[in-house]
């Protein structure tokens, strides 16, 4: 497996380094995975909480919102009529002879 001229002591040191490196890498992977999973779980819990806590509008709030909508639709109708009037404008008076 190793060249015959490599001394046993050096081989052992290399094996030790490899083992330690793998060990450290494994610990890092575990820590990162734990943190990531924790984050995802927390976000999911937060989403659930938000969904649960989303307040449902009262009838009064909906009525108010619908009144604002009606006003916005009427305003849009008025502005649309004005735009079309500008488009069909035939009020221009010929001033030259």
């Amino acid at each position: 497996m190793y060249p015959a001229d490599v001394p046993t002591k050096r081989k052992n040191r290399m094996l030790l380094w490899i083992a330690v490196s793998f060990g450290v890498l494994a610990v890092v992977v575990v820590i990162v995975a734990t943190l990531a999973l924790g984050g995802v779980k927390q976000a999911a819990e937060q989403n659930d909480q938000t969904a649960e806590e989303a307040p449902v509008a009262t009838n009064d709030q909906v009525k108010q919102s619908m009144a604002v909508l009606d006003a916005a639709v009427k305003q849009a109708d008025t502005d649309r009529a004005a735009a079309k009037a500008a488009l069909n404008d035939d009020n221009a008076v010929k001033v030259s002879d």
């Binding site: 909508l69 916005a72 639709v73 502005d79 735009a83």
Partner: peptide, 13 residues
């Protein structure tokens, strides 16, 4: 202005 008003109505809707 007319297009803007309509986008406003859509947003309220």
């Amino acid at each position: 202005k007319a297009v803007e008003s309509l986008t406003g109505a859509f947003d309220r809707m």
